[in-house]
Every structure is written in structure tokens, then in C-alpha cells.
Design a protein around this nucleic acid. Structure first.
Lengths: 202, 202
DNA sequence: TGACTTGTTGAACCGTGATTCAAATAGGTA
DNA sequence: TACCTATTTGAATCACGGTTCAACAAGTCA
């Protein structure tokens, strides 16, 4: 028998198992047994913790987004220079490659969001949070006279997040000439235009 | 009994039925019976024409993309002025609203493209074709001295298509403040920066 | 130690979807 | 008209996924 665990621990395991299963089989194509297998349990045990599987899937998506966002915040937390911060932030929004689990999970939701309001809200919220993150950086840089913004910070930030999203999809779909490096360069090209800063990492 | 049809006619019907069924139930969550019902046939009849359902789904996606692309080309075909052509093209790449069937179908593929090479290739091909479409417009405008391009035409075009894609997803997910009009305005803001043209429709 | 709680299994059951195929039917054709 | 072939149906079958639940195992606590 699989090791017995506390309710809280097991739920965390299951959320993680669901995340992995969804990446393999799709957010909507995933089956209870696949999640159970991924967690090393039987389907009954999964149902014991999540009588309604949809709740588990939503929690897994929520956790995936939270993790994605936190990782980004962490990567830029120690950086003071707005230019370097902007460069790092752009990079942190892109998948590391076609197999990047965090972004794969987010991409799974794009289609489902059209049919499922909860997923739509999750994605929308994540988008807005990322926009805020960029706005802070841009306005700090502008206040310091480092950036000369071509538009208001919200417009530029929305564009930056949109570009990350779209190139994320391209990378996941294995575009032959747009990988993480090329995508970062394309977004930086825009950022230069929008901030009037050359944005060269020292 | 449903009306008897020629092989070619029936296949067209089925492709359309599959398209509708996938929008309702997801590209991967769709079932044979749902497609059959949408086509007004029984599951057996569907299998008679498409012994492997995956072939039908791929053809349906392919047809959806073809239709989407052709509609865009058609909308801009009569326009001579590069600026107006650019504005119209941008608008034609966005869904008309959250229910827009063409874009919904494309969004369905985003996640699946990570797992399915065929879908990845389809999306990548569409992306590249749209980039070419923009390049033609930009270079015509530049040659006429109307546009002053801030980057090479490929970079700008990729950015434009990426923005369309990303805002398409936002609109489908029902973002509270980004609808078709706002999205078009955001993309135009970038296009102004990149072309040096004010891009005001007369 | 023994009762009690909680987590897990495994088997049984049920409904559903895919698949197969003989029979029925519509259209075309000689 | 009668035949021929392509298309469609409907029922039977099979496989599989979700759901339930009695039994069991592993902790917990008095």
C-alpha cells in the first residue's frame, strides 16, 4: 500500500500529480486513473480527497500559476537597476524550451478558457498581475529618468505580457526559428522602442 | 434516414460538424457521437467516411485555419493604401467577440500543439503565413515612403502577429477591459511606433 | 492495550463511447 | 424496370472510465 499521509500532504501530492498528468494528456483529456497513477495511488484514494475531480484540476491550475508567478518575482527580487530588471523579467516570462512544464500547463488553458469561466478568470487574473509587475518596473525607471516611455505604462506592460504569451505558445509548438533566445530578442526590440533605453545587459 | 450525399459532400459536412463540436467540447474532449449528432448522422456513418477520427479532426483544424486566413486576405484585397491596409489587417486578426468561432478553434490548439506535432506544425505554418502577409504590407508602405520602419519587416510582422494571437486569447477568455476595440487600439499603438505613421482611418 | 479515526485498497457495478457488421435504403445506371 | 453499388442505420459487442463501498491498514489517543 502507498504510504499513508496527512490530508494536507496528500492534497499537495495530488495537485502535483494532476499537474503532471494534465501536461501529458491535456487539461481536458486527462483521466482520473492517470492522475491516480501519477500519484502512486488508486482512483478511490483520489476521490476520497477530491470527490469532484474538477476541483482538483482547478486547484492544480491555480497552483501552477501561483508557482509561475512566484518564480518570476523571485528572479527579479534582488535587482535594483530598472533596465536589468526589465531584461530579466522578460526572460523569466518565456519557457526554457518546448518541454517547460510551467508554461505548458498555462497553454493548456487557453482553449478551455473559452468554455469554462473559472479558467478564463484564472488566466485573466494572471495576465493582469503580470501587467502590474511590468508597470512597477517601467514607472520606477521613468521616475529615475532612465526610461522615456513612448506610451503610458499600462499600454506598454500589456504589450510586453502579450508578447511573452504569444511567443510562449510559439516555443511550445516548436517553431523552427523562434526559440527562447530569439523570442527574448524580439520582445527586447519592442521594449527598446517603448522605453528609449538600449537595454544591453552589462 | 439522413439525406444520402456524395463522398466529397459528406466529408465537407463532417469537417464542418467536427469544427462545431470541437468548439463546444474542446479539441481533445470531443466525442464521436457529438460529431455525428452535429452532422445529423449516426456514429457508424462518421466512421464510414473517417475510419480514424484523428484524421477528421486534423482536417477540420486545417480547414478552420484555411478559412480564417482566406477571410483575412479577402478583407484586405481591395485596399491600395498601405496604412489603411495595415489597420484593416490588424482588425481582421482579432476575434469579433468571445464567441468568435474561427478564433475559438485556433485557441483550442495552443495546448495540444505541445503534445501533438501535427497540431504544432499547423499552428506554426499559420503563424508564418500571417507574418508574410504583414511583411508585404510593411515593405510596400516603406517602398512608397509612407512607413519608416523602426526594425526590419520580419521583426515588426512577428510582433504584430504575436500581439493578435495574445489578445485573441484575452478576448476569448473574456478579459473585462480588453475587447476587440481595445485590443485593436493596443496593437495600433505598437504599429505607430514601428512604422512612424499615425495610422488614423480617414 | 484496545477503541477510534483516517487513509487506502480492490473488487463490483454502471454508464458511456468506440467499434463492428448485417441489413436496409437511396441513387444511379443499363 | 430491375440491378448494382455506395451510403446509412441500428443493434450487438467490447473496452474503459467513473463511482461506490466493504474491508483493511496505519496512526492516534485514552
Amino acid at each position: 500500500m502507498a504510504q499513508r499521509k496527512s490530508r494536507a500532504d496528500r492534497r499537495m501530492d495530488l495537485i502535483d500529480a494532476a499537474r503532471r498528468a494534465m501536461i501529458q494528456h491535456g487539461a481536458e483529456g486527462v483521466h482520473l486513473n492517470q492522475i491516480a497513477e501519477e500519484a502512486g495511488l488508486t482512483s478511490g484514494a483520489v476521490l476520497y480527497h477530491y470527490p469532484d475531480l474538477r476541483d482538483l484540476l482547478i486547484e492544480a491550475h491555480h497552483a501552477g500559476m501561483e508557482r509561475f508567478y512566484e518564480q518570476r518575482v523571485k528572479k527579479i527580487s534582488g535587482i535594483a537597476d530598472p533596465a536589468l530588471k526589465l531584461i530579466t523579467t522578460i526572460r523569466s516570462g518565456l519557457p526554457e524550451g518546448p518541454e517547460d512544464a510551467g508554461v505548458r500547463l498555462l497553454c493548456e488553458l487557453g482553449g478551455a478558457a473559452g468554455r469554462n469561466r473559472v479558467y478564463g478568470t484564472l488566466l485573466t487574473t494572471l495576465f493582469d498581475r503580470q501587467v502590474s509587475m511590468y508597470q512597477t518596473i517601467l514607472e520606477t525607471g521613468a521616475a529615475q529618468g532612465i526610461f522615456t516611455l513612448a506610451h503610458d505604462s499600462e499600454t506598454i506592460s500589456r504589450t510586453l505580457v502579450a508578447l511573452e504569451d504569444a511567443y510562449g505558445y510559439r516555443i511550445i509548438a516548436r517553431h523552427h526559428s523562434i526559440g527562447p533566445d530569439k523570442a527574448a530578442e524580439l520582445i527586447l526590440d519592442y521594449a527598446r522602442l517603448a522605453t528609449g533605453h538600449e537595454l544591453r545587459p552589462k
